Every structure is written in structure tokens, then in C-alpha cells.
Simulated scan of single mutants.
Amino acid sequence: MTTAPSARLQVDIWSDIACPWCYVGKRRFEQALAKFPQRGEVDVVWHSFELDPAAQSHASLNMRDILAKKYGRSQEQAQQMLDSMTQTADAEGLTYHFDRLQVANTFQAHQLLHLAAEHGRQAALKERLLHAHFSEGLNVDDPETLITLAAEVGLDSALIRRALEQQTYAEAVRQDEAQAQRYGIQGVPFFVLDGTYGVSGAQSPETLLNALQQTWSERHPLQLIGVGSDSSAAGLCDDGSCTVPAPRDQN
């Protein structure tokens, strides 16, 4: 027996909690989805991506110093980068506080997102983690902080603690990252629509909406029913619709 393909459209999003553009991209995608007529038929799945798997959590590290060292910029240039990112976030209704941000390894947080997905709370936890990191300056690598944040979105504290202690979802994170490599993803956010189309970066809501519309139309092509092949009726309205006759040759 052949199983009919699902009528729903799945959007897989690779992103990192420590990525400022990922939070902006999330907001822009939400704006696009809100304008998409078939938004109720869209399933969004968040996937793990670590921009710096070797990152060491350290509350005293300064983002300006990190950027200056990473990109070979002066302190002033690094601060300008942070200010520009803050303004971009502000335009999307987000508040970034880089002055209080705690540099953190995100591997444990990604594990909890897989746990949350199994309980229908992934989207809520994704939002909570991003806000905690960029707006509140919380350490998203600290187990107790993670337990508190996950409990706030409805997950059981004992279940969360056990998952972290046993590294229950570590392999799931690695599988996401392996899939990202197979897709050739080198930066995030990265959107994969219906397993067919990829959109890289925090594109505008208009670009993301167009991607949704194109993917949906290709999965649900318009089929005309009861239309004959006789072209002699061009310009007539005898079949429930009016057609435009081809222009006559004036020569």
C-alpha cells in the first residue's frame, strides 16, 4: 500500500542559541508565517547547530574583546559591530544587552530542545533560551538555570535534570549537526522548506514569505477541472469564465 504524502509543509530551522542573527531570523520568520494563508498547515522544527562547539562558558568574557580578537578589529570597531546588531534586533522588537551577556557553550541547551520537542514545547523553550541569553544575560550552560528555564515552559524539572545528567539527547544534537554538514550549512540561521529549498541567513519577512508561497504552490499545484482543449472559444464566456482573445495580427 502506498502512503499518500502529507499535505503539511515542514520547515526545518538550524540555529544556535548563542547566535544573535538567529533570534532576529526567528522573528522575521514569524512575521512571514503570520502572513502565510496556510500557516496552520506548517510544522516548524528547530535543529541544533553550534557556532563554536569548543566554547568555554565564562561570565567574565567580554563580547567586544571576543569580536575584536576573532575578526582582527579594534575595540572601537568591535563595539560598532555590537551597536549595529543591537539596533537590528531593536527593529524586530528584541532587546539585546551585550554588556551583560554571558558567553556560554550551548550543547546542553540544544539537548533540552530535543527533550522539549518530544513534549510539544520546543518552540516555547527556543524562545525562552534566546531571551535568557541575549536579553537577560543568563548562563544558558548552567544546569540549574536550564532546569529553571525549561520548567517555566512546562517541562518537568526531574525529567530535565535526568536528561542533562545522563546526556540523553547528546546523540540527537550530533545527528542534527551531521545533517547540517550533509546539507552544506556553514552559517545560521538556515531554513529548509519541505526538504527541498534552503534559505540562508536572517532574510527579510518578504523573502521568507515568498519561499513559503513557492514551496506550497509546488506541493499543491492548481489543477483545472472540466476545461476543454478547444481554443476557438477564446474571448467567450460560455464556460463560467472569460478568456482574453489573442491580439489580431495587424499586418
Rank of each mutant, 00 (worst) to 15 (best):
E118R: 15
L149Y: 13
Q80N: 09
A78D: 07
G195D: 12
Q87N: 07
I66Y: 02
M81T: 13
L94Q: 05
D83P: 03
Y169G: 10
Q166F: 01
I185H: 05
T196N: 13
A54Y: 00
L101S: 10
L159P: 00
Y71L: 13
P53L: 08
L193E: 03
Q56C: 00
R162W: 01
Q122C: 04
P143M: 05
A68V: 12
V199H: 02
L61C: 00
Q179K: 12
Q111R: 14
L130T: 07
Q181L: 10
R128V: 12
F191S: 01
V192H: 10
A109W: 07
T88Y: 02
L94P: 00
V188F: 11
S57A: 08
F134H: 10
G137M: 12
T86M: 03
D194C: 08
D156G: 02
A89M: 05
G72T: 10
I160E: 04
L115V: 13
T148C: 05
V173Q: 08
N105R: 11
L155G: 02
Q167T: 01
K126N: 15
R128Y: 05
L82I: 14
R161A: 12
D142P: 06
Q77A: 15
D142N: 15
N105H: 08
F134T: 12
Q167A: 13
Q79W: 05
Q77E: 15
Q75Y: 04
G120I: 02
P143G: 03
Q77M: 09
L112K: 03
Q186V: 00
A178L: 13
G120C: 11
P143I: 04
Q181M: 09
Y197A: 13
T88N: 09
Q77N: 10
E127A: 09
G72K: 09
R73E: 12
E136H: 06
E152L: 05
A170T: 12
L155C: 03
Q181V: 03
A123C: 01
T95S: 13
Q87H: 06
A132F: 11
P189T: 09
E76Y: 04
S135V: 00
A180C: 08
A59Q: 07
A54C: 00
H110N: 13
E171S: 15
A172M: 07
Y197V: 15
S60W: 03
S157Y: 09
Q179L: 14
V173Y: 01
F191E: 07
H58F: 01
R121W: 06
A151L: 04
M85E: 10
